[in-house]
Design a protein around this nucleic acid. Structure first.
Lengths: 116, 116
DNA sequence: TCCTTAGTTCAATGGTTGTTGAACATTTGG
DNA sequence: CCAAATGTTCAACAACCATTGAACTAAGGA
């Protein structure tokens, strides 16, 4: 990774609905989770979001999503893999993630090609 | 009413998901819509929310919900009736309101008695 | 080893939030 | 008509947002 090897994530049981909705109350972050939903197992690398905002802004938005418990971020060499916390979110707030993702179809922004 | 006889509401087609989620990203406003969901036809009066926050704060929160297109507010004498914009929200973002409301059960805060 | 890639950190900035209290406006009941 | 009830407006405030650019760090490849 680029600095802190493992980033802080909230436990599943301390994820709050208000925080999740706050994390998703932004076009850029909605576009991010919409892309993450395209391939939930694989997730995505931060670099795949640079068409949405500047590098610094992406770091900021991913951190927001992570702190709210919406995504999990793992180190992978000099990169970071981002994945939806689907299981935790479904367990805690059933239906919420699905209905929101279903309504962001079309936000994914063109080319979302494979990495590596 | 207390001042402006009719308040501005966004048209259904200009309600944005990010704004709706932003309007719902607050404990007080989640509690408000949770109570509104208890009786969607009748709605509620602002005075019924005073256990959640100060009078001024309630005015502010209801305005946020109204401007985001989540509720419709109508004049009723010196009072204001607040109702969920269920039809508009369902048409625009199917499933979103339902899943969120389902996950706020328990936020209604005790006594939610009849008005008048 | 040096350079490139990938992402972070920091400080700054302007805008928005949520809350308060004091003053105000309107309707309605006595 | 007066007073109470219901809610609004306004200014102030501290806190947080989203974005920027410059400097940085760490891992990998040539």
């Amino acid at each position: 990774m680029t600095h802190p090897s493992v980033l802080p994530h909230p436990d599943a049981d301390q994820i709050s609905l208000a925080n999740v909705l706050g994390a998703l109350s932004d076009q850029t972050r909605l576009a991010i989770i919409s892309q993450l939903a395209c391939n939930e197992e694989k997730g995505a690398l931060c670099g795949q979001f640079t068409d949405l905002a500047s590098k610094t802004a992406i770091t900021y938005h991913i951190a927001k999503l992570r702190e709210a418990g919406v995504v999990r971020v793992t180190a992978e060499g000099t990169r970071r893999r981002v994945r939806l916390r689907r299981d935790d979110l479904d367990a805690r707030f059933p239906g919420v993630l699905d209905s929101i993702i279903a309504n962001t179809r079309g936000l994914e922004l063109q080319g979302f090609e494979a990495e590596e």
